[in-house]
């Protein structure tokens, strides 16, 4: 029997108002996606703590996605701008750690952009499948 293909584990932090809604809209539109994604819902992308992102990597995430409302559309005025600033710090840390840059991605997805959400997950999953498991993934974790 052929061995089943390796499926990465991707952790996405989604804000309640936009990107989580985008994931819902993708579902409502039945846009099929790989089963690699695990969503952590927060109220605002401004709540996404760099510590949480690193924790996800240390626990075994093959990629971590930071998502939120389009700039200018934040439900809480400007939380996504703060997320963007923190993301820049994260990007630098990912580089320092020697992780491939594809393993950390930022995307602004509105609640109506179901197709965009699905395409994003498909693209990221394909990229990570190419890269293989994260070098930070502890042994024996899946």
């Amino acid at each position: 029997m052929a061995e089943t293909e390796w499926e990465p584990k991707i952790v996405a932090f989604c804000c309640n108002w936009c990107s989580y809604g985008g994931a819902d809209t993708a579902g409502m539109g039945r846009f099929q996606q790989p089963s690699s994604l695990r969503i952590i819902r927060v109220m605002c992308s401004g709540r996404i703590d760099p510590m949480h992102v690193f924790n996800a990597f240390l626990e075994g995430a093959d990629a971590v996605l930071v998502t939120g409302c389009h700039l200018g559309d934040c439900h809480y005025v400007n939380g996504n701008y703060k997320a963007q600033v923190r993301y820049q710090f994260l990007e630098e840390m990912v580089r320092e750690l020697g992780l491939e840059p594809e393993r950390l991605q930022l995307n602004w997805i509105s609640a109506s952009e179901g197709e965009k959400f699905a395409n994003f997950i498909r693209d990221v999953t394909a990229q990570i499948k190419q890269l293989g498991p994260s070098p930070l993934k502890p042994e024996g974790v899946n």
């Binding site: 584990k9 952790v11 695990r38 927060v42 949480h52 075994g60 024996g140 899946n142």
Partner: peptide
């Protein structure tokens, strides 16, 4: 949130 992140994975 961290508990949720942790339980994405299993040994």
């Amino acid at each position: 949130l961290l508990a949720q992140v942790r339980s994405v994975f299993t040994f």
